[in-house]
């Protein structure tokens, strides 16, 4: 029964079996086709490791939004939610809080004119009027090279009240 054709075939089968065993060992259990588009899943859109969803659900985001600040900095918080800057997040200007009072102990205070000019510099094509959920908003802009140059905006304006000091 010995045949020169069967030997290489045998080798191929052994290699295949080894690869398959190796594969089942290293591929995680939850890796496979999951629900997407069809009740039976889809190879193109639903092929992944399910456990990764939990990884991202538990992932801590660095930007904590305004609600996070409201208990400790209630003064600034109250001012801003009653001002025209109510929609501008604290962390836009102060940077991400991460674990703020612990690590970084203080957030950055940027008094540079450029910070305000990101939104308030006059450009002919910058949208000056728009609506947000039916409420009209006018973005008042100033020519950066004409409006009190050389002085920080916050010398005259309060960033949290969006008004003159």
């Amino acid at each position: 029964m010995k045949s020169h054709a069967l030997r290489p075939l045998f080798v191929v089968i052994v290699v295949l079996v080894i690869i398959l065993i190796f594969r089942t060992l290293i591929v995680p259990k939850d890796f496979g086709i999951h629900l997407r588009d069809t009740p039976f899943g889809s190879y193109i859109w639903g092929y992944y490791r399910k456990g990764d969803e939990d990884y991202w659900k538990a992932f801590k985001v660095k930007h904590q939004t305004m609600n996070y600040c409201k208990d400790c900095h209630s003064e600034q918080y109250k001012k801003i939610i009653n001002s025209k800057h109510a929609k501008v997040q604290c962390e836009n200007c102060h940077g991400p809080a991460v674990d703020h009072p612990e690590k970084p102990e203080k957030l950055n205070i940027d008094r540079n004119r450029e910070l305000c000019l990101r939104c308030h510099a006059y450009l002919p094509y910058r949208t000056a009027k728009y609506e947000l959920r039916g409420v009209p908003i006018t973005l008042k802009m100033q020519d950066p090279d004409a409006h009190n140059t050389g002085i920080e905006c916050v010398a005259c304006h309060s960033p949290h009240e969006a008004s003159l000091k």
Binding site: Y48, D52, W56
Partner: peptide, 14 residues
Amino acid sequence: HYTPEGIVLIDRSW
């Protein structure tokens, strides 16, 4: 990958 809720994610370990 794509979660059933419609979010596109990257599996960092994979």
